[in-house]
C-alpha cells in the first residue's frame, strides 16, 4: 500500500467507526432518546422491567362468547414485534376503531377465501391485558386482567 492509500484507508475507517460510535450520546439524553438505523445505540434489553406488563392485542369473539387470541399476522406484516408496535401506536394515537375495522375486514376476507381458522368469530376486540409475570411464568399460564378498548363486529353482510 502506498502512503496515500494507507491514509485514505485510515480516514475511511475512522469515519465509519466514528459514525458507529456517535449514537452512544443517546444514552445520556434525559427523555428524547432516539434510535436509528443502521447507526444505533442498541438499547434492546436495557429497559427497566417491572413485575407486571401490559400488552395491547386482539381477541376474536365467537357467537357462543368463546374468546380466541388472534395471531399478529391478521393485524399486519413484518413480524410480531413490528405489528405489536404498530398496534401500540394505534392505541397511543386513538386509532383503535380504524385498527379493529382493518382486522375485521381481514377476517371476513379470510373467511370468504375459506382458508380461515377463525370462521366462528363474529367480532374483534382490541384489549389491554395486564399480566403479572410471576403468575404467567411460574403459575397458571397466561392469565391477566383484560380491558376491552374497542370492539367491532366482523360478520360478512354481503350476499
Amino acid at each position: 500500500m502506498t502512503p496515500l492509500t494507507r491514509r485514505l484507508a485510515a480516514t475511511y475507517s475512522l469515519a465509519l467507526l466514528g459514525a458507529v460510535i456517535t449514537p452512544v450520546r443517546q444514552n445520556w439524553r434525559p427523555k428524547t432518546r432516539k434510535d436509528g438505523f443502521p447507526l444505533s445505540y442498541y438499547p434492546m434489553f436495557s429497559a427497566r422491567r417491572p413485575a407486571t406488563t401490559t400488552v395491547y392485542s386482539l381477541v376474536g369473539v365467537a357467537a357462543d362468547r368463546t374468546r380466541v387470541r388472534l395471531p399478529y399476522r391478521i393485524a399486519g406484516t413484518g413480524g410480531l414485534n413490528q405489528v405489536r408496535r404498530q398496534i401500540n401506536r394505534c392505541v397511543a394515537e386513538g386509532r383503535t376503531e380504524e385498527l379493529c375495522q382493518r382486522v375485521a375486514r381481514e377476517l371476513i376476507a379470510r373467511n370468504q377465501q375459506q382458508r380461515s381458522l377463525f370462521s366462528e368469530i363474529v367480532s374483534v376486540d382490541l384489549v389491554a391485558s395486564k399480566f403479572r409475570l410471576d403468575d404467567c411464568f411460574a403459575g397458571d399460564g397466561l392469565v391477566g386482567e383484560e380491558t376491552v378498548l374497542e370492539s367491532m363486529t366482523c360478520v360478512d353482510t354481503q350476499p
Binding site: N27, P43, F45, S46, A47, R48, R49, P50, A51, T53, V55, S57, L58, R69, L70, P71, Y72, L80, N81, V83, R84, S129, F131, L133, C136, F137, G141, L142
Partner: peptide
Amino acid sequence: GPLGWKWTSGESLRRQVAVDGVRKEAFG
C-alpha cells in the same frame, strides 16, 4: 440505562425474557 450495573443481577434479564414470552403468547 435506568438499572446501571444492577442490570448484571439478572433480574431485568429474567423479566425481559418473561415480557417477551407474554407478548408472544398474547399474539398466539
